[in-house]
Computed example of a mutant assay.
Amino acid sequence: MLRLFRVLGKRGRITIPFEIRQRIGFRYNDVLSFIQQDDGSVLVRREKICDNCNEFAEEFEENFTLEDFLDSLSEEEQRDALVHLSLKWVEKQNVSLPFASAKKK
C-alpha cells in the first residue's frame, strides 16, 4: 500500500502526488468527482463527460480559433461563457462590484 502525505492549502487546494496520478491514470484536464461515503471516507474518480470526445476533436480543423469555438456555441452557452469570463477578469483585476459582494453573502 502506498501512503503519501500532502498539506491542504488555505484555499483548499492540494496537488495529487505524481505516483497516485500515474497509478490511477489521472491526466491534465481530467474532470474528477468527489463522493463522501457514509463512513466519512471520500471516493475520487475520473468522470467521462463525453462519449465521442475523440471523434468530436477530429471534426475540428487544425486552425480552429477561440472565436470559431465561441461562435459554435448556442446563445445561452455564449452568455454563460461571458458571465464566467467577466467574473474571472474582475477577480484578477481585484475590482469590487456591488453585485459581487452580494453574491458572497
Rank of each mutant, 00 (worst) to 15 (best):
A102D: 07
L43Q: 10
D68F: 14
K48C: 05
F34P: 05
R3Q: 08
E58C: 04
K92H: 05
L73W: 06
R79Y: 12
E59S: 11
N94E: 15
S33R: 15
Q93R: 15
R46H: 02
L85M: 12
S33K: 11
L70T: 09
Q78G: 06
I49F: 08
N52W: 02
L97Q: 10
R45Y: 07
R11S: 11
R79T: 13
V83Q: 08
L97M: 15
N94G: 13
L73C: 15
F34S: 12
Y28C: 00
E77A: 14
D71F: 06
L66W: 10
F18G: 01
L2E: 02
L2N: 02
R27M: 05
L87R: 12
R21A: 04
Q78L: 09
I16H: 03
R79I: 12
D68Q: 14
L32E: 11
N54T: 05
I49Y: 07
I20R: 00
Q22Y: 04
G9K: 13
E61K: 10
E55F: 12
R3C: 05
E47A: 04
L4H: 00
N52D: 14
K92S: 07
T65D: 07
F69C: 06
K88F: 02
R21K: 10
I16L: 15
M1R: 14
E77W: 02
V90T: 12
A100G: 00
D68I: 11
Q22D: 04
K103R: 14
S33W: 03
L4I: 08
I14Q: 02
I20W: 00
F34E: 09
E19Y: 02
I35F: 05
F26L: 14
M1A: 14
S86L: 13
R21E: 01
R23W: 00
L2D: 01
D39C: 03
L66F: 15
V95G: 00
Q93I: 03
E19L: 07
E47D: 06
P17H: 03
R46E: 08
N29P: 00
A57Q: 11
V83H: 07
M1H: 14
I35W: 04
E62I: 07
F5N: 11
V42D: 07
E19F: 01
L32Q: 10
V83P: 00
A100V: 12
S96H: 06
D71A: 12
N63P: 01
F56G: 03
Y28V: 01
R27P: 00
T65M: 08
A57Y: 09
A100I: 15
F60C: 06
I16P: 03
P17S: 07
D71E: 14
V31P: 03
K105F: 05
E91F: 10
G9C: 05
I24A: 10
V83T: 04
D38M: 05
K92D: 07
L70C: 10
D38N: 09
R46N: 06
V95E: 12
L70V: 15
D71I: 03
L97D: 06
E67V: 10
E75Q: 11
C53S: 05
N94F: 04
V90A: 12
A102E: 11
N94P: 01
